[in-house]
Amino acid sequence: MADFAANTRPFAELDRSGRTRRLRRLAEAALTEYDVPVARLTPLGHGLNTTFRVDGADGGRYVLRVQRPDGPAVAQVRSELAWLAALRRETDLVVPQPVPTRDRDLVTVVADPAVPEPRTCVLCRWVEGRFLDERLGPPQLYALGEFTARLQLHGARMNGLDRGRVDDLTDFGRSQVNGFSDVVLDRAVEQAGGDEQVRAAVDRARAVRAELGFGADVFGLVHGGLHQENYLFHRGGVRAIGFDGCGFGHYAYDLAVTLGELTHLPQREALREALLDGYRSVRPAAATTDPAVLAAFVALRRVQLRLR
């Protein structure tokens, strides 16, 4: 009786482990669309999306991502995968390599009776490496700065991709024509319990965006989430994962995401300078690395995380 009740409870009432068990069955169905002999499927994480490590019977390793229902649309996920595929073809930057289905599609949409809505799923090859965080040093951040700049240069060549903005203030903002409108800001302040510091941070970000403009030298396709859980190191080289949040924004936003996640480290100032030096070695753009610009985007990112 207990097993029956667990299998018939509404998905929204399940705890994290219960939802992961349901999504595992959906993931198994998704994998039948790929020419990958599966030996083992292991849950990796259940956050905004749910991911599984896939160990192939042929020795290959992969990551299957089950997209959250309120995430990017199928066309937008295809655009993300198209960028990854182009990066693998056209550069030596190490990013996840998309695996096409038997029908040569980069995504598959799967439904399961125990999950209330169809889910978009993608499969990529495993990226080897280690996450460092407290062990980060200036050499790693210099390499990440170079990587970020080269990633942006390639993104500038990717025309016609269907991706949203990385700096929209809230989920409500993403549904509006202008994600920074007064209506969006008023709702954000209300969501933050009336905290006017939110308004001050957004007003400053508005001013900085206006000062920078939206020219190709300061604005384009960016990763949007280069924090310690999305970059890793292997044999001295930096690699990036977690492109599901990529989109269009100011290049300084990418750097601000990285900088905002270093504040708990005692060597944060040395890491900051190394990141910016590495970035400038590829893109010596003073506007993008201006301290006031970066501070405004760091504050904006902090507001976004607070209201997520």
Rank of each mutant, 00 (worst) to 15 (best):
R9K: 15
R9Q: 15
F11H: 10
G18S: 05
R22S: 07
L23Y: 04
R25K: 14
T32E: 15
L41R: 01
L44D: 10
H46A: 15
V54L: 02
D55I: 05
G56C: 09
G60T: 02
V63D: 08
V66G: 06
Q67D: 09
A73W: 03
A75R: 15
V77T: 10
A82Y: 09
R88P: 05
P96R: 03
D105L: 12
A111T: 15
A111F: 01
E117I: 01
T120Q: 07
E128W: 03
G129F: 04
R130P: 06
E134Q: 14
L136G: 05
A143Y: 04
L144C: 06
L144S: 03
G145Q: 07
E146L: 11
A149S: 07
R150F: 00
Q152V: 08
N159H: 15
G160V: 09
L161G: 02
R163F: 03
G164Q: 07
R165M: 07
V166F: 02
V166H: 00
V166W: 07
D168G: 10
R174N: 08
R174Q: 12
V177Q: 14
N178K: 11
D182Q: 13
D182A: 13
V189I: 08
V189D: 08
V189H: 06
G194D: 08
D195I: 02
Q197L: 13
V202T: 08
R209P: 08
F214A: 12
L226H: 06
L226F: 08
Q228H: 15
E229S: 13
E229D: 15
Y231V: 04
F233Y: 14
G236Y: 05
G237P: 09
G237S: 15
A240Q: 06
A240P: 01
C246F: 08
G249S: 02
P266I: 03
A270V: 04
A270K: 09
L271I: 03
S281K: 02
R283M: 06
A285V: 15
A285I: 13
T288V: 15
T289N: 07
F297C: 06
V303F: 10
Q304F: 00
R306Q: 14
R306E: 12
L307S: 04
